[in-house]
């Protein structure tokens, strides 16, 4: 028994070292630190929203003046209903930071399962699913999402699921490629010869060895989930009024930019851009660290 356990010990040890080195690598990367700082700021806004906001984000107070420019009272001005733009931008962080990660988690779980099955079993399953995925990827995600939302109906929950489902094929393709490399390695052969069933080999043996690509794919997709969800909200198929959704705020207030009232739309625009950039900087740094 001890003969079987002994050779495993150094393997675990080296895995730990690899993980520590990875962390060191990340902490030395400027892109990672800047990205984390941005994302963390928005996470703090989302969690401690009620302590940060100066007004209720959805409260259209008729006593406040509408479309007020930036003042000491209204840090970023007010919108067409007299709502405080600063409070709405802070509140918007909670909206996007709930649905974007949820959608990405759904997509990643489905995509990883699909990728494992395709890469491990190959054959007909792989061919058929591969063709379907390629067909689906011939269309921009936002277009298919719009089609689905029109026929199913809108709502935060539905949008989250639709984006999750549509991200699954892309993730599956990446994971499949990683599984293809693993499936011919000795440890998989050994498990098969031991008589383990397919699901065991995939989930217990292969899955821990493709964690790297999964993490990279998750962070990249998170960035694109924010991108896509903001776009859908902008088109009116995401969060519905009076939600302080950033995309929706821009859609509602963009018409009056030409009248010189820029603050209700430019600040949410900056918010979206900064969050996506923060996430993608993290994703890029993680990818670079894994590649090394």
């Amino acid at each position: 028994m001890s003969a079987l356990v002994a050779p495993q010990a150094p393997a675990i040890d080296s895995k730990k070292t690899v993980r520590r080195e990875l962390l060191h690598e990340l902490l030395r990367s400027k892109a990672f630190l800047i990205g984390s700082a941005i994302v963390l700021t928005w996470v703090v806004c989302a969690i401690f929203r009620d302590f940060i906001v100066t007004f209720d984000p959805t409260d259209d107070n008729p006593f406040q003046q509408h479309r007020q420019p930036l003042t000491d009272q209204f840090l970023l001005g007010t919108d067409r209903l007299g709502r405080d733009v600063f409070s709405r931008v802070v509140g918007g962080a909670r909206v996007i930071l709930l649905i974007a990660p949820a959608a990405t988690i759904i997509g990643t779980v489905l995509g990883v399962l699909l990728g494992l099955v395709m890469g491990y079993y190959r054959g007909v399953v792989d061919d058929v699913l591969g063709r379907l995925i390629e067909a689906l990827l011939a269309l921009p995600v936002i277009l298919v999402a719009l089609l689905a939302l029109v026929s199913i109906g809108t709502g935060t929950l539905i949008v989250t699921f639709v984006i999750g489902l549509l991200f699954a094929p892309v993730i599956a393709r990446t994971i499949r490629a990683a599984v293809l490399v693993e499936r011919d390695l000795d440890y998989v052969r050994a498990a098969q010869l031991r008589g383990e069933r397919g699901p065991y080999v995939m989930l217990v043996e292969i899955l821990p060895n493709v964690v790297g690509p999964i993490i990279v794919e998750f962070t990249v997709r998170l960035g694109y989930a924010i991108f896509t969800l903001a776009g859908l909200s902008f088109l009116g198929f995401g969060s519905q009024p009076p939600s302080p959704d950033w995309g929706l705020m821009i859609a509602e207030e963009r018409a009056v930019i030409s009248a010189g009232i820029w603050w209700p739309s430019i600040f949410p625009a900056i918010a979206i851009a900064s969050l996506v950039i923060g996430v993608i900087l993290i994703a890029d740094a993680i990818q670079a660290a894994f590649d090394r």
Binding site: A31, G223, Y224, F227, A230, G231, F234, G247, I250, R254, I257, S258, G260, W262, S265, I266, A269, I272, A273, V276, I277, I280, L281, D284
Partner: peptide, 25 residues
């Protein structure tokens, strides 16, 4: 590389709104 990456992931309507505010208005 960094400018390309950040521009690529900024939604079109976000850049668009900024462009409108600066160059049109």
């Amino acid at each position: 590389s960094l400018a390309g990456l950040t521009l690529a992931v900024t939604p079109e309507f976000v850049t668009g709104v900024v462009l409108i505010a600066v160059f049109a208005v």
